[in-house]
Each structure stands twice: as structure tokens, then as C-alpha cells.
């Protein structure tokens, strides 16, 4: 983890309440897909943890939803402005377990980390399928970007306005060797129930520090208490304890 200052290159709306921000700076501590950064915002006491969508050299891409005061403030920031950032936090996904045909299942704000993951798996020669879940057409983003990587992409919308009508689990077909997922907790529970292979889940939790010091984001697992920020955000399917997570 490094405490560094990143400079905004671009910050644009790409879907309903959804923004893509690109920043430049020292990203040398990023280990791989599934990690996150923690932005310090002017006038906000706590940092904002945001998942890494992609890293290319010294260029970071994040996609975030403007859903609260902090992310709304972020959405108004301009190119050239800087942000003090902790780079990079959390364990990230383990791509070594993917098998030949992994499926990546992302829902809403859980989709961004799937991009870096898909790109990494493809570079490792894997046959990657991606299922992207949204509520409705206006929320859809990054379908073309995933296709450009060379993934098979299926879109599911809850209202049926685009693609499969229903949830990501309705679009899940057998044949995958392993799965990776990130999204709202009800979706993660559904993925857990429907999937037949092992897989990895990325969790969200309200954090204090983001680097393992405050114990604000602890959860119970089969292998003991874990901090979502430091021991996660990625947990293996076999270690998750849903009923006692809280």
C-alpha cells in the first residue's frame, strides 16, 4: 500500500448515476484485479473505498455510482485536480484457480473490478464469459469494452429492457470451470446458491480505515474472523458463512 497523490485525467458520466474516472500517478503497488483504492475527499473525514476497474502503467480507471455525498462530490471533480489516495488495498482475486472457462458475474457497481479481472484472465489464455446485471437499460455500461477484450458477454436486466429479463443467475449457463463475482449482497447470495463450482466473491462493507487497523468491516468466516478491507474483499466460496456474516 502506498499513500500517493493521483491526478484526474478524465471524469465522465457513462450511465445513470454512473461515472468513469481516470487518474494518473504511482500505481506500482497494485498486485492484480480485485483490489481497491481509498480516496481522501476535501471536507470528508473518512476516505472513500472504490474498486479498481483497470490499471495500465500509471493510469488508473475507476467506475463509481454517485449515491451519497462523497461520490456526488467526486462526480463534480475536474481533470487536473488531485486526490490523496491509498493504493492499493485488499487481497484481490486469485486467477490461478480459474480453470479454462471461468465465468465472471457482476452486478451494478460490482461490475468494474470484473473488467481488470477479465483482461487478466484473457491475457493468461482463458476462455472468459461475463454476465453483467443491471436494473434497467439506462444503467448499462461497459458492454462494448468487455466485448472488445474478447469475452462472451451476456446482459441481464431486472426489467427486461435489454438482454435476458431477470437477474444474473437467470443468465448463468452450465459449462464454466470456476466463477468470480461482485455485486450487491442479495445477488451474491443468489450466485452462491445457483453456482455448482468453486468461486470467489468480492464483498462490500462500510469501512473506517481500509487497511486493517480499525476492525470496522469484520465478518465471520469458516476460517475465522476476517477484515473485508485487508483479508478480503475477496473471499472463497467455501469460507463464506452467510447466516453469521453479521
Amino acid at each position: 500500500m502506498k499513500d500517493t497523490r493521483l491526478t484526474i485525467i478524465s471524469n465522465k458520466k457513462i450511465a445513470l448515476n454512473t461515472f468513469e474516472m481516470k487518474l494518473r500517478g504511482d500505481l506500482s503497488d497494485v498486485k492484480g484485479p480485485g483490489q481497491f483504492v481509498n480516496f481522501a475527499l476535501e471536507g470528508k473525514y473518512l476516505r472513500r473505498p472504490i474498486s479498481i476497474c483497470d490499471v495500465n502503467g500509471d493510469e488508473l480507471t475507476v467506475i463509481y455510482k454517485a449515491v451519497g455525498q462523497g461520490t456526488e462530490q467526486m462526480s463534480e471533480m475536474q481533470p487536473g485536480q488531485g486526490m490523496d489516495t491509498l493504493v492499493a488495498l485488499g487481497n484481490g482475486y486469485d486467477t490461478a484457480k480459474s480453470g479454462e472457462r471461468p465465468v465472471l458475474i457482476g452486478g451494478g457497481a460490482g461490475i468494474p473490478p470484473m473488467y481488470f479481472l477479465a483482461r487478466t484472465l484473457i491475457s493468461e489464455g482463458k476462455d472468459v464469459s461475463v454476465i453483467l446485471g443491471f436494473n434497467t437499460k439506462e444503467e448499462i455500461f461497459y458492454v462494448n469494452e468487455f466485448e472488445a477484450l474478447g469475452c462472451r458477454v451476456t446482459v441481464a436486466t431486472a426489467d427486461g429492457s435489454v438482454g435476458v429479463k431477470g437477474f444474473v443467475t437467470d443468465a448463468l449457463k452450465p459449462g464454466y470451470t470456476y466463477f468470480y463475482t461482485c455485486g450487491p449482497e442479495p445477488m451474491l447470495r443468489a450466485v452462491y446458491a445457483r453456482t455448482e463450482t468453486s468461486g470467489q466473491f468480492s464483498f462490500e462493507e462500510r469501512m473506517g480505515c481500509g487497511f486493517g487497523a480499525c476492525m470496522g468491516c469484520s465478518c465471520r468466516t469458516v476460517t475465522g474472523y476476517k477484515r473485508i478491507c485487508k483479508d478480503g474483499p475477496v473471499l472463497e466460496k467455501e469460507e463464506i458463512l452467510w447466516t453469521e456474516r453479521r
Binding site: 470528508k44 473525514y45 462493507e205 462500510r206 469484520s218 465471520r220
Partner: peptide, 22 residues
């Protein structure tokens, strides 16, 4: 283990924690 999550709330000039001695 401590208290259930969420355990953290942001404030204007600080934060609230209810970690509960984990």
C-alpha cells in the same frame, strides 16, 4: 468478534465506531 456491521459512521469532524472490542 465484537458487534454486528455496519460498525462505522462518518461525522463532520470525526467518526463513530461500534467495533465492540473485537
Amino acid at each position: 468478534f465484537g458487534n454486528p456491521t455496519p460498525r462505522i459512521a462518518e461525522c463532520q469532524a470525526g467518526m463513530i465506531n461500534s467495533v465492540g472490542l473485537q
